[in-house]
């Protein structure tokens, strides 16, 4: 469960301020975040992941209070419990698809690429339709395939929470649906919570809940 209480964050020297008195995401819940640009959707993901730290309030992931952890602990938490899917895939061009999927193991403290990790990566790749393409580098993959690799990378450490920041924003309609299907299916398999920022209103009916930042923030701020 992700619990946010009395959260307040502002960028230094900027007018922008994000205030969330209360927000709870249940385990396994699929939540979409929509709203105009500049309303703090990505900032919310960063605060939940501990990439940025709120000036006040708390963010809890399960029984761990992210906002009170030190930098090393937040990094370890991200590596172990949070999977990220980016709009531009953010794959490393010099690594094969397989090595991109295993990348979190290489950079996380205490993680080790063993036979189990390799098997899991291969199974994930197979479930995302990447058989026979694991030795290819990103440059030799289509955009849809690249996002599938990015999705596998987000899930390979079996996270409790998957944060998708406009994960389908660069894809054509066919791939958009396919990736979202995979995202839903794989997170459901793992029982992971999915929090996805999206501009695509056609996809919203598929989520359990939609947070519209254009009204949500006003309502939240009004509640303060």
């Amino acid at each position: 469960m992700i619990t946010i209480e009395n959260l307040s964050f502002a960028y230094p020297g900027g007018d922008f301020r994000l205030t969330i008195p209360s927000l709870v995401l249940e385990p396994g819940e699929k939540v979409a975040v929509v709203g105009p640009s500049g309303t703090g959707k990505t900032t919310l993901l960063n605060l939940i992941a501990g990439i940025t730290v709120p000036q006040s309030g708390s963010v809890r992931l399960g029984d761990q209070t992210v906002s009170q952890m030190n930098d090393a602990a937040r990094r370890a938490l991200r590596a172990a419990k949070i999977g990220f899917v980016f709009q531009d895939f953010a794959l490393l061009d010099y690594l094969s698809a397989r090595e991109n999927i295993l990348f979190p193991y290489r950079i996380a403290a205490g993680a080790k690429i063993d036979a189990a990790a390799r098997t899991r990566a291969a199974q994930l790749a197979a479930s995302c339709g990447l058989e026979g393409k694991l030795e290819r580098r990103p440059g030799a993959l289509s955009q849809g395939e690249q996002q599938r690799v990015a999705l596998c990378r987000a899930l390979v450490m079996q996270p409790d929470l998957v944060l998708a920041d406009e994960a389908t924003g660069n894809l054509d309609p066919a791939n958009k649906t396919a990736i979202l299907d995979l995202l839903f299916a794989r997170t459901a398999e793992q029982g992971a919570t999915l929090l996805a920022v999206t501009h695509d209103h056609e996809l919203l009916p598929r989520f359990d809940r939609v947070i519209d930042f254009s009204t949500f923030r006003q309502a939240q701020e009004g509640a303060v």
């Binding site: 590596a79 999977g83 990220f84 950079i107 996380a108």
Partner: peptide, 16 residues
């Protein structure tokens, strides 16, 4: 920089 940012976001340990 983008690669480093990605590594940081997905939890690269300090000093990596």
């Amino acid at each position: 920089a983008r690669e480093m940012q990605t590594a940081f976001k997905i939890g690269a340990r300090r000093g990596m």
